[in-house]
Amino acid sequence: MLEIRYRLTQIALVLVSVVVILGAFTRLTDAGLGCPDWPGCYGFLTVPTGAEEVAIAEMAFPERPVEASKARNEMVHRYFAGSLGVLVLLLWVLSLRAKQHVKLATTLLATVTFQAVLGMWTVTMNLMPLVVMGHLLGGFTTFCLILLLFLRLKTRVLLAREHIQDKPSPLKGDKLLLGMIKAATLVVVLQIALGGWTAANYAAVACTDLPICEPGWQEKFDLSQALSVPTGHADYEFGVFPFEARMSIHVLHRFGAILATSIIALLLLRLWQNHSLRPLALGLGSLTLIQISLGVSNVVFHLPLAVAVAHNFVGLLLLATLVIAWYLVQSRRKTSLSVHINSSSQSSQLPLEQGA
């Protein structure tokens, strides 16, 4: 049972990665409304292609003529997302049977269920930015929960295969390190949310100069407008904000990138001080440099599709690396604390045993 769950979680990690990539691809090709209904497409289970099917579809949705390429992008994303939902449900059932990781599996199932609701709202509310951003964050959350389940199962599998004991590996200054990892994770999550807000409001090309924006952006910058939630519109496709608001959103995202890079740089210095965590530091540092390069390329080359999709996915990998770091350091701290408590308990009982 343990091995089966472990293998299924590996498959789920690959599948959720594909779903995230397809989600970004769908959004960046303006295919979010490629199918104007949910969960089908123009009333069909597949994309209508025949002349008769297209006629029926356009009669049902006259405001949305069939664009086969966009509809195909949307439905492929839905098929993979649906497959992931089935797999997560299976993992939940197996976790209940094994009586292991039940809370985590239940949280994962609830997240995927709500993610499906957000997917429906994305269509039925015509790409409302708050829903689109929430759908992005839901996808990233799903990935991180599956990753955490994978890490926990991997630990159990290794212990079972090798018949080894969980020996403590204390980290010097681990309390500070764990705090830095948590801070970096929070900042990266906020930056991902800003990236989702930028994309959802079609503000990705609002600034085409580096490092911040075009000259005079300070006079146009309006934080309250950038963080306001647009409501009351029948359709949000291609954005409803004026240029000044989009520019402010984009500038805010760039400031977030500077802050995130600074926090990660401090964390890298701390990670590098521990020899066992240097490979993690190298991975995190490399991903950060790649992400910065992709962000700059998006500006210089005016948001090429491949680069924009990669920028989205590398952001996910950055978050995943921080989750792994959090798990490793926290696991070592718990093990070390347990050993310390047990040692203290044995020491306190020793004189009584000798006196007896």
Rank of each mutant, 00 (worst) to 15 (best):
L153M: 10
T111G: 08
G85N: 05
V86S: 02
A184P: 06
A116V: 14
L127V: 09
L108H: 02
K103V: 13
T198W: 00
Q191K: 12
R78K: 05
D174E: 13
L104I: 11
L177E: 01
G179V: 08
L177I: 07
L177V: 11
V188C: 10
A105P: 08
G82D: 06
G82F: 04
A183N: 09
R161F: 00
V189H: 06
L84K: 05
L147N: 08
H163D: 12
L108K: 05
G134W: 08
L190M: 12
T113W: 10
A160L: 04
T107D: 12
A110D: 03
I192K: 07
K175L: 08
A193Q: 11
E162T: 15
T113M: 10
T106P: 02
A200P: 03
V88G: 06
N73Q: 09
V102K: 14
K182V: 15
G195A: 11
F114C: 10
K175V: 10
F80D: 03
R78W: 04
W121M: 15
K172G: 10
L108S: 09
T111P: 02
H77W: 02
L104A: 08
G179F: 08
H163F: 03
M120E: 10
L94H: 01
A200W: 00
V123H: 05
V93T: 02
